[in-house]
């Protein structure tokens, strides 16, 4: 069991225990709703920010550009915690990556 702390923009925190499963699967099993779309790592709807800890992937997190992945963004739908983790979660997180490409 690995403990994952989910921190929301309003300061609220949920703590869930991951048992060889994705952060999203653990959260949903414990009744915590996270944003999610494809659930296979390509749409980016669930994008969160890894504040502390290490996560691993069985498949490539296709929705994350390399520069975003390097900055610490992760995909809870396919990310498995390898250590205790703290994630910033919620719909605001993915919007941090949005920019008008021509402005």
């Amino acid at each position: 069991m690995t403990r994952v702390r989910l921190r929301w923009a309003d300061g609220r925190e949920d703590v869930v225990s991951c048992d060889d499963e994705s952060v999203l699967a653990a959260a949903e099993r414990e009744g915590v709703r996270l944003p999610a779309g494809c659930r296979r790592g390509f749409c980016g709807t669930c994008t969160s920010y890894l504040v502390a800890g290490v996560v691993g992937y069985d498949t490539e997190p296709r929705a994350l550009r390399t520069r975003h992945r390097r900055r610490g963004y992760v995909l809870p739908c396919i990310a498995r915690p390898e250590t205790a983790c703290t994630l910033r979660v919620g719909p605001e997180v993915v919007r941090e990556l949005r920019q008008n490409p021509w402005r």
Binding site: C43, G44, P101
Partner: peptide, 11 residues
């Protein structure tokens, strides 16, 4: 591809 357009538009 969905992995290209779903996360957002990038020139």
């Amino acid at each position: 591809a969905p992995k290209t357009y779903q996360p957002g538009f990038d020139f």
